[in-house]
């Protein structure tokens, strides 16, 4: 019978106490936030060894451009034996932009962390081979950051690759998320020179 994820999360909270926030339940999923990003490897190792969370589904990163702390790294952890999964989040301020790696806990974290480094620029201390995975070595930017435009910026690395900005013709003609009201969300608000 599958264990409800809240049980595993309570065990983590009882072990680590104040480091872990109260679990949030939304749409049937349980999320906990780790307040000290430097201890994430410890928490993950505890989850794997003591609680049997042997399957890491995904590691994601979110860029809160303009907020502090800027980065959130999200771990989707699941346990095959218990048949449940939960989410562990941690915030990292922009000045640090570095997290301990969890590749020694789950091997699959290797490529996920390389992708986060490539796309967002968050480094992972202790990673065996932290290089770019989707873009090429020597590409100067981190594309998924909010201040990097969708069209891209021109770069040139002879013998390897070049990039030119894609012609967007004033588009994309979609609303910006999270704005307070409809006038701010409209695409026209962007044309008056506001940064999206």
């Amino acid at each position: 019978m599958p264990t409800p994820p809240i049980e595993l999360v309570r065990q983590i909270k009882s072990r680590f106490g104040d480091l872990i926030s109260e679990p949030i339940e939304f749409r049937g999923e349980v999320t906990i936030t780790l307040k000290d990003y430097a201890r994430v490897a410890e928490v993950c190792a505890f989850a794997k060894e003591q609680l049997g969370c042997d399957y890491l589904i995904d590691i994601t990163s979110v860029d809160h451009y303009g907020d502090d702390p800027r980065w959130t790294v999200v771990y989707e952890i699941s346990s095959l034996a218990h048949g449940c999964q939960f989410r562990l989040k941690t915030d990292i301020p922009e000045e640090i932009s570095e997290l301990p790696t969890v590749t020694h806990v789950w091997r699959t974290a290797d490529w996920h962390e390389r992708e986060i480094y490539d796309m967002m620029g968050i480094r992972f201390a202790g990673h065996p081979d932290l290089r770019r995975i989707l873009m090429w070595e020597g590409y100067p930017y981190h594309p998924l950051r909010k201040d990097f435009p969708l069209a891209g910026r021109p770069t040139d690395l002879p013998e390897v690759a070049f990039t030119r900005p894609a012609p967007l013709e004033g588009g994309p003609f979609v609303t910006t998320p999270g704005q307070p009201n409809a006038t701010e969300r409209e695409p026209r608000a962007r044309e008056t020179g506001r940064e999206s």
């Binding site: 989707l134 873009m135 594309p143 990097f148 435009p149 969708l150 069209a151 891209g152 910026r153 990039t163 030119r164 900005p165 894609a166 012609p167 967007l168 588009g171 994309p172």
Partner: peptide, 16 residues
Amino acid sequence: TGGMYRSYAVLQGVDN
């Protein structure tokens, strides 16, 4: 022409 992928990583047309 690059198709529907108007992004930073796609060459906009192999005729470049």
